[in-house]
Nucleic acid binder design. Structure first.
Lengths: 341, 341
DNA sequence: AGTATAAACTTAAACGTTTAAATTGTCAAG
DNA sequence: CTTGACAATTTAAACGTTTAAGTTTATACT
């Protein structure tokens, strides 16, 4: 049913030359005469030729595709972070004529299978690993397979190639801001302990607190998952006994859940208690009250990760992008007394 | 650097047979003796053989890949709807050993180029079109190219293959609920007019209103984009003069924006004014107050769309999935007086 | 005139599969 | 002991590119 594809052979027949000539003409090789090159280009255009990338891939032994496997808990609970990361990667990949293969898997055996598929069957030239974990088997897997990869993270991941948003300075900014707002009892809802992000975040929070002479100390609470639900639960616990006057959350969704927990217990957000998130997802601006949060340029993260990966693959020879991306604090009503005067 | 791939040729050499024998043995053809088949299977496993899918694709003239191009306004404004749709598609595709190629483009010339790439260069065997528009050039393009596609929509899209969430009954449920809550002045914030969803939604709302003898009539307001920002703006206008006592929005994000607008103007949501969304994104449950909304099983939509596409491609011979998916209303605080007693 | 050089091509092999058709050998039936 | 059938395997071509190496023809230099 589809009109059969035009191949180099067809063009060769049409212009009465060999397939090799046509191929070289179209690729702009120097050893084809300018007239012939023009003729072939025109004929190709007239016949509606488009190269068969599969054949090209076989010949070149490159797929010109990269992969991304989203670690999602379920379809519904997909994190806005990933969407932003994905669009960043997708745009950059498209700019360089690369395909982006996407899978969405729950961490576990399914996920392993997805990596096996992409890596072992060489469906892609490289992968981007999002949200690295402690002793991440994905990193180990790809390393032993010699498949290029780049980690999109919140801290360096030596000795592996990575791009990261500086979570440390982000969290520091949040704490400094809260101190300026005269908050003295700051709690931190930390990422799940199996994430690399956990250690970085907890350390950063600890350092930030230690650097503030006004503060006695901080309370840290962990999550099993960065979701509203978990944020709600964690905040409930924090508020149950000697409630803090500020909460910093490792993720906006968590902050939103925490805010709701506080509200349900009768706290006035921004007055009785301040809440600060991390990420600045689009919704942060539209929560009630609007959420103060650390803006993470997630699509830039994806874009840089993609560029670094393409450089590692050898597909581009631009200078590599900066590895570290600085986040910044966006102050809104959930932490700012002035809004309440 | 990567350990050179094991090919059929290597296995053939190892067992002293021809490449054809090995190929057929591994594919389970009947004309290879059972012993030889076993030997080859074992040898292949020992040598760590994995088929080269590019070669296979060239030979079979199929890519075993499908494409999805997300129409996004920007990385940051990516719609949770697409994420859910994507995971639904991705999971189903993976089940059938298909790759999913994803691109994210702003509607316009970039988007065209993305379709050209995937379609003309035959990088995929088929595509899923999300959020169909009026006189959708994407549909026309794929039709003339004879590339299989399926539309994921909110209504049938004759004569094209489609899967849809029944927006009509969803909106009807919302209106009926509001009437039961004694709302009499119901406004509707409709989708952008360039979407097919627009007509369906407006018609459905009109019919729903007409079927309720208690109601005088409904007010309809349009958007340029289904975002919080636009929802905010639209609601501001609605509330400026003779405010309605209920607002139905075509999208949860829009509803969230509308809710905020109402709150900013001093309305008490759920009391002075009811707000109902469409979609039931995860956040709906965690807004303040929680949002009453029409639950759209978006990942099911993606899953069914994928199955239908695979069937159209001829990759599976299951009976096609049901084309229509029924949404249901989830009542929460933003529309329910009981919460306020 | 003879030789080197260059320009403009063509030939042929390769990438790793799949599969229709051909080949070889074995065995049973006539 | 010939014929035919069948099982097990091989041969060869094909999928559509790319590219190293080879060929032809024209031009320039000695």
């Amino acid at each position: 049913m589809p009109p059969t594809e035009v191949t180099l052979k067809d063009i060769a027949r049409a212009v009465g030359k060999s397939v090799a000539t046509v191929s070289k003409a179209l690729r702009g090789h120097a050893d084809i005469s300018p007239e012939m090159r023009a003729l072939i280009a025109q004929t190709a255009a007239e016949m509606g030729y488009t190269p068969n990338i599969t054949a090209r891939r076989l010949q070149k032994k490159r797929t010109d595709a990269i992969g991304l496997i989203l670690p999602v808990q379920s379809a519904r609970r997909a994190d806005p972070f990933f969407t932003e990361l994905l669009t960043g990667i997708a745009n950059e990949a498209a700019r360089h004529n690369f395909d982006l293969l996407v899978s969405a898997r729950t961490p576990g055996s399914d996920e392993r299978e997805a990596y096996r598929r992409l890596a072992a069957e060489r469906r892609v030239d490289g992968l981007i690993i999002a949200q690295p974990r402690r002793n991440d088997w994905r990193i180990e897997f790809l390393t032993t397979r010699h498949l290029p990869f780049v980690v999109a993270a919140h801290q360096p991941v030596p000795p592996h190639p990575a791009v990261w948003v500086n979570a440390e300075t982000g969290i520091l900014q949040a704490v400094v801001h809260l101190v300026e707002e005269n908050r003295r009892q700051i709690a931190f809802i930390a990422p799940p302990t199996d994430l690399l992000f956990h250690q970085t975040a907890v350390r950063a929070f600890g350092n930030a607190i230690a650097a503030q002479p006004e503060l006695s100390g901080g309370i840290v609470s962990d999550l099993t998952e960065m979701s509203q639900k978990e944020g709600y639960r964690a905040a409930q616990h924090l508020l149950a006994e000697s409630p803090p006057d500020a909460i910093v959350a490792c993720h906006d969704l968590v902050a939103l859940g925490a805010m709701k927990a506080a509200q349900d217990q009768g706290f006035e957000i921004g007055d009785d208690i301040a809440v600060v998130g991390f990420g600045d997802i689009l919704l942060a601006e539209y929560s009630q009250p609007p959420l103060t949060t650390v803006h993470r340029p997630t699509d830039t993260l994806g874009q840089h990760a993609c560029r670094l990966l393409l450089a590692a693959i050898g597909a581009i020879e631009d200078s590599p992008p900066p590895a570290e991306i600085e986040p910044w604090l966006v102050v809104r009503q959930s932490s700012n007394l002035e809004f309440w005067v």
